[in-house]
Amino acid sequence: MTKILGAVLAGGRATRFGSDKALALLDGATLLHHALASLAPHCAALVVCGRDAAPVPTIADRPAPGLGPLGGLAGALLHAEAHGFDAVLTTACDTPFLPADLLAALLARDGAFAAEAPTVGRWPARLASGLIAHLADGGDRSIRRWARSAGLHAVMPGVTVPNVNTAEDLTRLSRRSGNAGTPI
């Protein structure tokens, strides 16, 4: 059985949102809590990347802060590799809900990412050193382009993943009933 680490990528600056998105409330829970809850049923452990404090262990972006989602993914992959995990299942802190069919498609593959939301993916831990080298050499920080160069494929094109970039996005999402999972 594959041992999967769940990682919420939460190191962004939230410039479009205007405040710390991870702590924004949706249906009585923070976006960070919703993101963690979306991963929890599928993972042996959870971490948050790129933050100093969270309700689960935090890990630093690698090889340095400020590298965007790839820095968070690199930190998660290194942590996974060092602690005996086979893979990392990721989402972003501004992605509070993951469609069940998308999760099933990701979990059925050795490695893949969501076509419409590349921060959502299943990443083999063996990719850690290659990603670190890529970032240390100043490589392109597009998660989608790096994933393709690593041989991973996008799954479920056209499937929309709820995402919060602005306060208006949060308001729109809060109006949708029945989407909120149980926060952890």
Rank of each mutant, 00 (worst) to 15 (best):
L78T: 04
V8M: 09
P55F: 05
R172G: 15
T119G: 12
A82L: 06
A150R: 03
D61Y: 03
A150S: 07
A147L: 00
A80W: 03
P124L: 07
P41N: 13
P99A: 13
K21H: 15
A37H: 06
T91W: 11
G151K: 01
S38L: 01
A22R: 07
W146H: 09
A24D: 12
G68M: 08
A22C: 08
I143E: 14
H33Q: 12
L135K: 12
T182E: 14
P69G: 15
F113Y: 07
L107Y: 11
A114R: 02
A115W: 02
A108V: 05
W123Y: 13
V88P: 04
R175G: 14
I4H: 15
W146P: 01
V56L: 08
A44Q: 14
F97M: 05
S142F: 05
T166A: 14
L9F: 11
V56K: 05
V88N: 15
R51I: 01
R109G: 00
M156I: 06
T91H: 12
T171C: 10
L102W: 03
H79N: 05
I59G: 01
G121I: 00
G111I: 00
C93F: 10
S129I: 03
A7R: 11
L77D: 07
S38W: 02
K3H: 13
P65I: 04
A22N: 15
L102G: 05
K21Q: 15
D52P: 01
G158I: 01
H153A: 07
R109I: 00
P118I: 00
F97R: 04
A53N: 10
W123D: 06
A112M: 04
S19H: 12
T171M: 14
A167I: 06
A24Y: 07
D110T: 03
V161D: 05
R172I: 08
A64Q: 06
H33E: 12
A112S: 01
P99D: 14
I132K: 15
F85K: 06
A87V: 01
P69I: 13
A35H: 06
G66W: 09
G75P: 00
A112N: 01
R148S: 08
G111D: 03
R13G: 14
M1G: 11
A100W: 08
F97V: 03
A24W: 04
A125E: 04
T119V: 12
H134G: 15
L89W: 05
T171P: 07
G158C: 04
P96I: 05
V88E: 15
R148W: 05
M1A: 15
A10N: 13
A40N: 09
A54T: 02
N165D: 12
P55G: 13
L26S: 05
G18H: 12
P41R: 14
L46F: 14
A180H: 09
R144V: 01
G158P: 00
G28I: 01
A128Q: 02
T2G: 09
T91S: 15
G75K: 00
G130D: 07
A136K: 13
V48T: 12
H33F: 08
D101V: 00
L32M: 08
A154Q: 06
D61K: 03
L9E: 13
S177F: 08
P63V: 00
S177A: 10
V48F: 04
L131A: 14
I184R: 09
A128D: 08
C43W: 08
A167N: 13
D86C: 04
V155A: 06
H79M: 02
S129T: 07
G71K: 08
V164M: 10
W123Q: 07
G11A: 13
A147R: 00
D101Y: 11
I132S: 15
A76I: 00
H153K: 02
